[in-house]
C-alpha cells in the first residue's frame, strides 16, 4: 500500500510531465497544422472552379494549389451591404484574420446579417473572371458549407463545391461525394427570366423550371433543404456587393 503523500506526488508529477509533453508537441506542430488547414481550405475554394482549371483538384500537389491560389486569386472581404471591408476592420471583427480566407464562416453564421464579414475570391483565368462566394448553413446533423463560383454576370453558377461536418454517408453526404448531382448546378441562375430572385433549388419530385431548379437527392430531403436554404440566404448576403461589381 502506498501512502497518500506518495499518491499525490505521483499524480502531480505525471500530470506535469504529460502536460509539458502535449503542450510542446502542440506548439511545435501548430505551424504545420495551420498550413494544412489553410491548404485544405484553398483546395475547397479552388474546387468550385475545377472545371476552369482543367485538372482534377485531388491530383494537384500542395505546391500547385498554392501556386494557382497565389497567381490567379484575389481575395476581398465584404459586408452584407456590399462594401469592401478594410483589413484592419476585418482583423478586429474576425479574431485577427489577416486574409479574407482566414475568416471563420461558422462564427460569421452566428452573427447578425448586418455585422457579417464575408470573403469573396476573384478567380482570373485568362480573360474570364469568376467570383467565388462562401456559403454556410445547416444540414440534417450538423453544419454544411460550400463555395459557389459565379460567372461574370454575377448570377449564373460556373461551379460549386459542398462539404459537411456529419451528414449520413451515402445519403446526405452525397452533397459532397456525388459529382453528377453537383454538376447540375452549373449554368443555373439565381434569378428567373423576369429577374425575380429565385435562388437555385434542389427540387423533390422533378424539375419544372430548368433555369433555376435541379433534381433533389433521394433519401436526403432534409440535407437538400438545408442546401437550398444555404444557397438562398448565402447569395442574398452577397447580393448588394455582386450588384455593385456588375455595374462597375
Amino acid at each position: 500500500m502506498h501512502s497518500t503523500k506518495y499518491i499525490y506526488t505521483f499524480v502531480f508529477i505525471m500530470t506535469a510531465l504529460v502536460a509539458l509533453l502535449l503542450a510542446s508537441m502542440y506548439t511545435g506542430l501548430k505551424p504545420i497544422h495551420d498550413k494544412n488547414e489553410a491548404l485544405y481550405n484553398k483546395r475547397a475554394i479552388l474546387s468550385a472552379v475545377s472545371d476552369q482549371l482543367g485538372k482534377d483538384i485531388k491530383s494537384m500537389s500542395d505546391a500547385d494549389v498554392q501556386a494557382v491560389f497565389d497567381s490567379q486569386i484575389t481575395q476581398i472581404a465584404v459586408d452584407s451591404r456590399g462594401n469592401e471591408v478594410s483589413s484592419a476592420q476585418m482583423a478586429e471583427e474576425c479574431e485577427g484574420a489577416v486574409k479574407p480566407e482566414e475568416i471563420d464562416m461558422s462564427k460569421e453564421k452566428k452573427k447578425d446579417d448586418s455585422e457579417k464579414i464575408l470573403p469573396v475570391y476573384v478567380f482570373e483565368n485568362g480573360d474570364e473572371k469568376y467570383y467565388i462566394i462562401s456559403v454556410i448553413g445547416n444540414g440534417l446533423w450538423d453544419e454544411i458549407w460550400g463555395n459557389v463560383a459565379l460567372k461574370s454576370d454575377m448570377s449564373t453558377i460556373a461551379g460549386i463545391d459542398f462539404d459537411h461536418a456529419a451528414e449520413t454517408p451515402g445519403l446526405g453526404a452525397e452533397i459532397k461525394d456525388n459529382k453528377g448531382w453537383k454538376k447540375q448546378y452549373i449554368g443555373k441562375s439565381f434569378y428567373d427570366a423576369t429577374g425575380n430572385y429565385t435562388s437555385v433549388v434542389a427540387m423533390k419530385g422533378g424539375v419544372k423550371d430548368p433555369s433555376y431548379q435541379i433534381d433533389g437527392l433521394t433519401g436526403a430531403t432534409i440535407t437538400a433543404n438545408g442546401v437550398n436554404d444555404m444557397m438562398a440566404s448565402g447569395y442574398k448576403l452577397y447580393e448588394s456587393f455582386l450588384k455593385k461589381q456588375k455595374k462597375s
Partner: peptide, 14 residues
C-alpha cells in the same frame, strides 16, 4: 491518443 491525433493532423490532414 493526443499524440496520434496531433501527428495525423500534421502528416495527413484529409
Amino acid at each position: 491518443v493526443t499524440v496520434v491525433e496531433l501527428t495525423l493532423k500534421a502528416i495527413n490532414f484529409e
